[in-house]
Design a binder for these strands. Structure first.
Lengths: 219, 219
DNA sequence: AATTGTGAACCTCTTCACAGCT
DNA sequence: AGCTGTGAAGAGGTTCACAATT
């Protein structure tokens, strides 16, 4: 929950805001200057009512009879999502997934800048990947403090994930994007999101195995 | 929807089944032979009623007064999810994300075997990554047919994603795990899941920016 | 005594439908 | 005339609470 008016915003709404943001970028690049809720809906396989309802939680951004000004709505959503500025991010784990994330354009483009990379493997510490030198996780406190980091990405094996998290909690990291395939425990004042690719592909396996009536798009 | 009894299974339930499966593996490795819904719940930050309800859609696997036999429930969930066999998978896109997925243990361990990798970049075609030679996407039909592939992973830039999907549709691929940050369109008899890491980190940004009362775990 | 399985109650999210504005 | 913004209705998912079972 969050808002000035005290209403609760669902996770689903926040996810859709991210999608609207991308759609607006796409529309603007193609010369569209206004866009209707119907058009935004079609670009994301949603209903127009859903789009309007989502936006209405945060304000009245549209013009009746006309739709939404693309650039204006984009700015508003960026502000709502907190991506109208840059975030310094720490990455823990310089394995395959971690190294791929170092060069992930979508993070950079939305202002999430990976400023420091950690590992505990002596064979990796000191290596340079995409211009960043891997640091020893033992020095995590200092680096996190120096870079004013509030968001960390965890890309370590499951068995190390909780101890890494515990250490990050001490460093006053506030939010974690967790790629380890395990449920991590954090105090109530922290935020976690899990990115578990195996769960997604298992859902496809389930669908192919069980579902008679397909559904258009999941997630 | 899916079941013999015709009931609809929610996406959320399927995702949780994947989590229970992992928890059961973990429990078994630590010597537990039975487990209660309460224990399964605690391992995943859920309620015991939720766990029992999820499982009850598929049968009565437990024993009153005792709980669930770990190995037995694990087998049942594997069967429900369709991961009691192997799936041949195609990967389209040998960029950073694609190459990381080639060596992603979680896929292999659950029986998702990447059998063929495609790219359209002449500089990548022919290269060998993790023992697989990158194929020309122009030959996709033949390779998909030869490997009996029903599930494809798309890890290409957004602008290529839909045309790749259209081609895969012609190849009778049935399910797609989409890493491209765009909503792809597929016919009603296909399944799509989107893996969009930028959306997840933006949700963290939203939380840090807006939420006063934190919530324990998202996703 | 302990724990499942499940109908009913509850709560949350989505869709409808239309008043209101441009 | 067209499209938004939103209260109300509807659909769907979660939790409660307890009978049933071991």
């Amino acid at each position: 929950m969050a808002l000035a008016n005290g209403s609760k915003i669902s996770d689903a709404t926040v996810r859709r805001l991210s999608k609207y943001y991308r759609s607006l970028k796409y529309a603007y690049d193609r010369g569209m200057r206004t866009i209707s809720s119907q058009e935004l809906a079609e670009m994301n396989n949603l209903t127009a009512a859903q789009v309007r309802k989502d936006l209405s939680f945060f304000g009245a951004f549209g013009r009746r009879g006309l739709g939404y000004y693309v650039a204006d709505l984009q700015r508003n959503i960026a502000r709502i999502l907190g991506i109208n500025k840059t975030w310094n991010v720490a990455l823990v784990g310089a394995g395959n997934i971690g190294r791929a994330l170092l060069d992930y354009d979508q993070f950079r483009q939305q202002g999430f800048l990976i400023k420091v990379v950690f590992d505990n493997d002596p064979n990796k510490i000191g290596n340079v990947y995409h211009g960043l030198e891997v640091r020893d996780f033992n020095n995590v406190e200092e680096e996190i403090r120096n870079n004013k980091i509030k968001i960390a990405i965890i890309a370590v094996p499951a068995q190390f994930a909780q101890s890494v998290v515990d250490r990050l909690i001490e460093c006053k990291v506030r939010a974690i994007l967790n790629f380890a395939p395990i449920t991590i425990q954090v105090p109530d004042n922290m935020f976690v999101r899990n990115e578990n690719m195996a769960i997604e592909i298992e859902a496809l396996s389930f669908a192919l195995t069980n579902r008679k009536e397909p559904q258009r798009t999941m997630s």
